[in-house]
Design a protein around this nucleic acid. Structure first.
Lengths: 176, 176
DNA sequence: GTGATATCGTTGGACATCCAACGATCTTTT
DNA sequence: AAAAGATCGTTGGATGTCCAACGATATCAC
């Protein structure tokens, strides 16, 4: 069980030797070595590509993928706190402070003080925020349809389930 | 084709209504709304989780997942230029300057001037770099074995193939 | 050859992100 | 009720990332 990935990668490496040292062309394919089959690496590559493709799609509305996730989560959880939001979003709470500052400044989100706990805010979308969310959701749907096409409709559910499992099991303390 | 993702997400949304506004417990599950089934979102979550799990695994060696990918690519492509490396790594070339500065400072990588083109460097691992790469590779193999277990050996190949397709097709100009 | 264009690595500015530490507030202990 | 501890959002510092612009060098057009 411990060798599956490593052993497979070794073979791939042998099958893709490095180029001769001097004739290295920038356009030439690169030897990925063990990286060629490693999930972690390709997860990063795919995430980066998806992220910037979304950014391209959602351009002109001045709200990137990150902000969009925030708007969606607030929209579907009115009154959520920043800490809960940061957990749902998989980002540190301190990351949210400037992001929410920005969304508030742009009139998309309100921070309400709650009597029940005066340390925390209750976050809500303003009407403008709702409108922006709807607009963004339409664009995201296009992006998702694109991903659907790439993944293949039949694979899709399985693919997402695996992603969730990775996030879930690797989330906090990686149990061996 | 345009509706597959959106339509499905709509349904999911209806099945996971937001909590009553006042009784929001931080430990309470969050309503993800359309995000619940969106590939882009879970790609990001999984990537983040995998990244930090690796960082945990590779701790004590002071080389994070990013540096590790660099070492691997240089090790398997001796003489590669910074620009080619940045492309293979999926990062902007300007990102590499400080990262390589660091690896050079730590004696793991050399930048050699090439007569053929005096603008560019030829990157190579030092013996220390080779040693570090081997150590890191072993740790990465453990991380990958862990991912293997989560993904399931049978799904794994298909999963990686999909990740590569996403990175490839969304890579540059997202053709519709 | 000489001038226009392209490419290499670097710099600067702008963000996003993490972690550790903080003051304010809530909860638990005693 | 007072003290001790936990949690909320913010701050500060560090790093990783992108983009645009730059000087140095290479290549292309003529």
């Amino acid at each position: 069980m411990t060798r599956t990935a490593a052993a497979r990668a070794e073979q791939e490496t042998a099958a893709a030797p490095a180029l001769p040292e001097a004739a290295r062309d920038p356009a030439e394919p690169v030897a990925y070595g063990p990286l060629a089959e490693w999930v972690g690496f390709h997860l990063r590559m795919a995430q980066t590509a998806s992220f910037s493709a979304f950014a391209r799609e959602a351009d002109g509305i001045a709200v990137g993928p990150g902000r969009f996730a925030l708007l969606t989560l607030i929209g579907h959880n009115p009154g959520i706190s920043q800490t809960a939001l940061s957990r749902a979003n998989g980002r540190d709470k301190s990351t949210l402070t400037p992001a929410l500052d920005d969304l508030v400044r742009r009139g998309l989100v309100r921070r309400e003080r709650v009597a029940r706990d005066r340390r925390s805010y209750a976050l809500r979308l303003t009407p403008e925020g709702e409108a922006a969310l709807q607009e963004l959701t339409a664009r995201a749907a296009r992006h998702e349809a694109n991903l659907d096409r790439i993944i293949g409709p039949k694979e899709r559910a399985r693919f997402v389930k695996i992603l969730k499992r990775i996030a879930g099991e690797l989330g906090d303390a990686a149990g061996g």
